[in-house]
C-alpha cells in the first residue's frame, strides 16, 4: 500500500504549486490515449478491407470505381475508413509535434497547421466518397 500524498515519509518543503509544476499537464491525456486505441482497433479490419478494395479495383476506370462505391457496404466502409484514419493520424501527428517542437509558439502554430491540413484532406476524401456513392 502506498501512503496517501499527505503522509509522505520525506516531507518536501515546497508549496503545492511548486510540487505540481513540471509533473505533467493534467489536461486531457486519457481522452487522447483512449481515442488513439479505439481508432487503432477500428483501423485493423478497415485497413485490411482497404487492401482488399485495392485488389478489387486494380486497373479500374472511373465507371468501375462508381459501381464499386455505389454498393452501400463499400460506401459505408470507405467513409468509416476515412473518418477513423484521419482521426487516428491527427492524434499521432499531434504527439510527434509535441515531442519534437519545444518552443510554445512554434508548437501551437505547427499543431494548428497540421490540424487544418488533416481536416481539409479528410473532408476532401469524405466528400469524394459521398459523391461517388450517390
Amino acid at each position: 500500500m502506498s501512503a496517501p500524498r499527505g503522509d509522505q515519509a520525506v516531507k518536501i518543503m515546497r508549496s503545492s504549486l511548486g510540487q505540481a509544476r513540471g509533473m505533467g499537464s493534467a489536461k486531457s491525456g486519457l481522452g487522447h490515449w483512449r481515442a488513439q486505441r479505439l481508432t487503432a482497433m477500428a483501423l485493423l479490419p478497415l485497413s485490411l478491407y482497404f487492401v482488399l478494395s485495392v485488389f478489387l479495383l486494380e486497373g479500374a476506370d472511373q465507371a468501375a470505381m462508381l459501381r464499386y462505391m455505389a454498393e452501400p457496404w463499400n460506401g459505408v466502409l470507405f467513409i468509416a475508413l476515412i473518418l477513423a484514419l484521419f482521426y487516428h493520424l491527427q492524434l499521432g501527428l499531434q504527439v510527434v509535434i509535441e515531442d519534437y517542437i519545444h518552443s510554445e509558439g512554434k508548437r501551437l502554430a505547427s499543431l494548428f497547421a497540421m490540424r487544418a491540413g488533416v481536416a481539409l484532406f479528410g473532408l476532401l476524401g469524405l466528400l469524394s466518397v459521398l459523391k461517388l456513392t450517390f
Binding site: 462505391m69 484514419l85 493520424l89 510527434v96 491540413g117 484532406f121 476524401g125
Partner: peptide, 20 residues
Amino acid sequence: SGVALAGGAVLLSLWLTAAA
C-alpha cells in the same frame, strides 16, 4: 511509418478526389 502513412492518407484522398 505512421508519419509516412499520414502522407499516404493524403494521397488516398487525392486518388478518391480524382475519381469523383
